[in-house]
C-alpha cells in the first residue's frame, strides 16, 4: 500500500528508534538523581574533609564508624524497631484483613476510615503522637505519670543482653506504635487483596472436609497468601529502615540516644557532626543491606511466577 518506499523506510526508522526516545528522559533523570549520587556516595565513603577539599583515606571511615559506640547501639535500636514494627503490623494487618474479607454491609466505609492514617505524612503522624505524650501537657502524660513513666524523657533500663539495647525505652515502644499505626492500612489492603484471590471453593471444600477455623488459617489461608506476606514483609523492612521523618518529629532521636535508628544516626553523622565521609560509609552499609533484600524479593517473586 505504501506508494513511496523512501517514506516507508523513514517511518520504519522512526518506529524503530521510538522506544529509545521515549525512555531517554526517564533514564537521564534517574542517572542524575539516583545512579550518579550512589556512586558519589561510594566515593565519598573513602574520603575525608581536609580544609576545603576531600582527601582519600581508604577504609578509615568504615573503621572509625564501626568503633563508634553509637554504631552497634543504632543497629540494636533498628533491629528492635524493625522486629516490633514488622511483627505488629503483619499480625494486625492479617487480622483486620480477615475481618474486612467478611464483607459486612459497611465494609466500604470501614476501609475508607481505616486508610486515613496511611495518607498522613510521617512527620505529621509523629507530631500527632507526640501531642499525646508531650512531657507534662500531653493527653496521656498524666495517666503515664501516675505510673511513673514519662514516655519522651525516660531513658531505657539497663540492658539485659550484653550491649544490645533491650529492653527498649518507652520512647522506642511508642515510636513502634506510631509507625505501626501509619503502616497498617497499606499492609492490610495488600493482604486483603491477596485474600480475595483465594478461590471460594478451596475454603469451602476444606470446610466440608472438616477443617476448623484455625486449621483453615494455618493450612490453607497462610500458605496461599505467603507470597504477598513476603512482599509486605520486605516493604515494611525497607520502609522502616529508610524512613526517618517520624523519628524527627516524634522523638528527635532522644531521649539521649534511645531512638537513634540507623537512618537517624546517618543524618546526625552527616548534617549534625558534618562527618560526611563517615556518614557515606554508613550509607553504603545500609544500601548493601537494602539491595540484598531487594534481590531476595526479586528472587522470591520470580520463583513464585515460575511456580504458577
Amino acid at each position: 500500500m505504501q506508494k513511496n518506499p523512501a517514506q516507508f523506510l523513514k517511518r520504519f526508522e522512526i518506529r524503530k528508534s521510538l522506544p529509545f526516545w521515549l525512555i531517554l528522559p526517564t533514564v537521564i533523570v534517574i542517572l542524575i538523581i539516583q545512579v550518579y549520587p550512589a556512586f558519589y556516595t561510594m566515593w565519598l565513603s573513602l574520603q575525608e574533609r581536609k580544609g576545603a577539599s576531600w582527601e582519600y583515606v581508604g577504609f578509615e571511615n568504615f573503621e572509625r564508624l564501626t568503633k563508634a559506640n553509637l554504631f552497634p547501639e543504632s543497629i540494636g535500636h533498628t533491629v528492635i524497631f524493625l522486629v516490633g514494627y514488622v511483627a505488629l503490623t503483619l499480625t494486625l494487618g492479617f487480622i483486620i484483613a480477615q475481618l474486612l474479607k467478611r464483607n459486612v454491609p459497611l465494609t466500604g466505609l470501614y476501609v475508607t476510615i481505616l486508610f486515613i492514617p496511611w495518607i498522613i505524612a510521617d512527620i505529621i503522624a509523629g507530631l500527632v503522637f507526640r501531642l499525646l505524650v508531650t512531657p507534662d501537657y500531653g493527653l496521656f502524660s498524666g495517666i503515664f505519670a501516675e505510673r511513673g513513666i514519662s514516655v519522651l524523657t525516660d531513658s531505657r533500663s539497663p540492658s539485659i543482653i550484653g550491649n544490645f539495647p533491650f529492653p527498649p525505652s518507652p520512647a522506642m515502644i511508642f515510636l513502634i506504635l506510631a509507625a505501626t499505626w501509619r503502616a497498617l492500612p497499606f499492609i492490610t489492603l495488600l493482604i486483603l487483596a491477596s485474600l480475595q484471590t483465594i478461590p471460594h471453593e478451596v475454603i469451602e471444600s476444606a470446610r466440608i472436609d472438616g477443617a476448623n477455623g484455625w486449621q483453615l488459617t494455618s493450612h490453607i489461608t497462610i500458605p496461599l497468601i505467603l507470597p504477598t506476606m513476603v512482599v509486605a514483609l520486605f516493604n515494611l523492612i525497607l520502609g522502616g529502615m529508610n524512613g526517618v521523618g517520624m523519628v524527627f518529629s516524634l522523638t528527635g532521636g532522644g531521649p539521649g540516644t534511645a531512638t537513634y535508628v540507623l537512618s537517624y544516626f546517618l543524618y546526625v553523622l552527616g548534617w549534625g557532626q558534618l562527618r560526611f565521609g563517615r556518614a557515606a560509609a554508613l550509607a553504603m552499609m545500609i544500601a548493601i543491606v537494602n539491595w540484598f533484600l531487594i534481590f531476595l524479593v526479586l528472587r522470591a517473586t520470580q520463583l513464585h511466577k515460575k511456580g504458577r
Binding site: 538523581i33 549520587p37 550509607a283 537494602n290 539491595w291
Partner: peptide, 30 residues
C-alpha cells in the same frame, strides 16, 4: 516494544528503588 536490554533496563530501574533515599541525599546535598 521489545528491544535489546529491555529486561535489563527494567530490572535496573527496579534496583534503583533499593538505593536508600538518605544515601542519595548525602550526594545530592553536596
Amino acid at each position: 516494544y521489545r528491544f535489546r536490554g529491555h529486561n535489563a533496563l527494567m530490572t535496573a530501574i527496579y534496583a534503583v528503588t533499593g538505593i536508600p533515599l538518605i544515601t542519595n541525599m548525602l550526594a545530592l546535598y553536596q
